[in-house]
Amino acid sequence: MTDTPDPSAAGDGPPPEPSGAASPTYRHEGPAVSAIVYYVLLVTRRRRPLFEDAAVKARAEELVVASAEGAGLGVRFVDVAPATVTVHVEAPPTMSPHEVVRAIRQPTASALKAEFEAVRRAHSVFVRRYLVTTMPVPEMDGAAFERSVPKR
Rank of each mutant, 00 (worst) to 15 (best):
G11R: 01
G11W: 00
G11V: 00
G11E: 02
G11P: 02
G11S: 09
D12W: 15
D12T: 15
G13K: 08
G13D: 10
G13L: 06
G13Q: 14
G13T: 15
P14Y: 11
P14E: 15
P14H: 14
P14M: 13
P14T: 11
P14D: 15
P15N: 10
P15F: 09
P15G: 11
P16C: 06
P16S: 07
P16L: 11
P16I: 12
P16K: 13
E17D: 14
E17G: 06
E17I: 07
E17Y: 06
E17R: 15
E17N: 11
P18R: 15
P18G: 12
P18T: 03
P18V: 04
P18M: 06
P18L: 02
P18E: 09
P18W: 01
P18I: 03
S19L: 04
S19G: 12
S19Q: 11
S19R: 08
G20L: 09
G20W: 04
G20A: 13
A21P: 07
A21G: 04
A21E: 09
A21D: 13
A21L: 14
A21Y: 05
A22P: 01
A22S: 01
A22R: 14
A22G: 06
A22I: 07
A22V: 04
S23Y: 05
S23Q: 05
S23R: 02
P24W: 01
P24T: 04
P24I: 04
P24Q: 00
T25C: 01
T25E: 14
T25H: 12
T25Q: 13
Y26V: 02
Y26S: 00
Y26H: 08
Y26W: 15
R27S: 10
R27V: 08
R27G: 07
R27H: 07
R27N: 09
H28K: 03
H28Y: 14
H28M: 10
H28Q: 15
H28L: 15
E29R: 09
E29T: 10
E29N: 02
E29M: 04
G30R: 05
G30I: 03
G30T: 11
G30W: 05
G30N: 04
G30A: 07
P31C: 12
P31M: 12
P31W: 13
P31A: 12
A32R: 10
A32M: 12
A32I: 00
V33A: 07
V33C: 14
V33D: 09
S34I: 08
S34V: 11
S34T: 15
S34P: 00
A35N: 11
A35M: 07
A35E: 10
A35P: 01
I36R: 03
I36G: 00
I36F: 02
I36C: 01
V37H: 02
V37M: 03
V37F: 02
Y38W: 08
Y38T: 07
Y38D: 06
Y38H: 15
Y38S: 06
Y38P: 07
Y39K: 03
Y39P: 02
Y39T: 05
Y39F: 15
Y39C: 05
V40T: 04
V40P: 01
V40W: 00
L41G: 06
L41P: 01
L41W: 02
L41A: 04
L42K: 02
L42I: 04
L42P: 00
V43A: 06
V43R: 00
V43Y: 04
V43S: 03
V43W: 04
T44G: 05
T44N: 05
T44H: 03
T44D: 07
R45M: 05
R45F: 11
R45S: 12
R45Y: 14
R45L: 00
R46C: 11
R46M: 11
R46K: 13
R46S: 14
